Simulated scan of single mutants.
Amino acid sequence: MTATDVRPGPVAAAVAKAPHPRRRLRFLPAVLFLVLLAAAWQLMATLLDFVLVPGVPAIVTEMVDIVSDGSFLDQLGITVLRVGLGFALAFVVAVVVGIAMGRNEFARRFFEPAVLLGLTIPGLVWALLCVIWFGIDLVNPVAAVALSSAPALMLQIYQGTRSVDPDLLEMAHVYRFSRRVTLRKLWLPALAPSLFAGARLGLSLGWKVIVLVEVFGMSSGVGYQLNNAFAAQNVAAVLAWTLLFAIVMAILEYGILQGLEKRVSRWRKAVSV
């Protein structure tokens, strides 16, 4: 019998494919937190017995109604489109400016005041200014999201650029890599952690700003629906839209961003082994 004839049996194969117990329980702390939060809210609503503090059943009923009548998907699609366009614009600009700041001292000193100014301006100000400047046009939410997200992205990419191993840059110079190859094979893999960290921060800022823009100056989107619920003093609807929005953010984080980050970072684990 040769080494190639030795194969794992069906039981061993099933054990190998079975998920690790820790992997199965990784969401348990988050679920426990949400259960305790819902229980605490329900206790508060019961003790206060106030119409403006709805209980968990009323909020869940409102969420089911919003999803079942189709309004949530329609309004969410509009909001996601606006955020996606604004974030894409901010991402492209931030990658170019962030790498330039990390590689060139003049560029760093030139763009540094803009980054610091952008980080200090509240999202509410960007929302109000873009509503004044662009009205209800699509440019309004796209510009607001881009202006609020770009500074944080630039800072993350700048810091990531400064941490790139100089030996890798020297190797690329010695072998005369083209700019395209250097960007694709060196900069993007090396900057992956900074890009994902910046993406999380930028998206979180973009979500907050887009809601403000839709509240103040748009006639559609999740923010517009929140404003309608607020005007009607429907606290259950306000909380329902907020929770549905948070669920979408959780799906984006755990279902997309973390999966992409693991795939991009596989080479780091392989190198460290």
Rank of each mutant, 00 (worst) to 15 (best):
L183D: 11
A144H: 01
F111W: 14
G221I: 05
L260R: 00
G255Y: 14
F33W: 11
A127P: 11
I59S: 08
D5Q: 02
G160D: 07
D5W: 00
V142W: 07
P21V: 12
L186Q: 09
I132W: 00
S204K: 05
V51L: 14
F216K: 10
P21A: 13
L155V: 10
I78K: 12
M44D: 15
S194T: 03
M1F: 13
F91M: 00
F216V: 15
G55A: 07
F106S: 13
R109N: 11
V235G: 01
A107Y: 15
A58V: 03
V235C: 00
Q233F: 15
L34P: 02
V215L: 08
L76G: 01
F72M: 15
L117M: 11
A199V: 10
V125M: 06
V213W: 04
G123R: 03
L116T: 08
V264A: 11
L188Q: 02
A190Q: 15
K185H: 14
T161M: 08
A58M: 08
V51I: 12
A88P: 01
L47F: 10
A172I: 04
W207R: 03
W41T: 05
P122W: 11
S149N: 06
E214C: 11
V93K: 04
M249S: 02
D49V: 05
I66V: 09
T161P: 04
R184S: 07
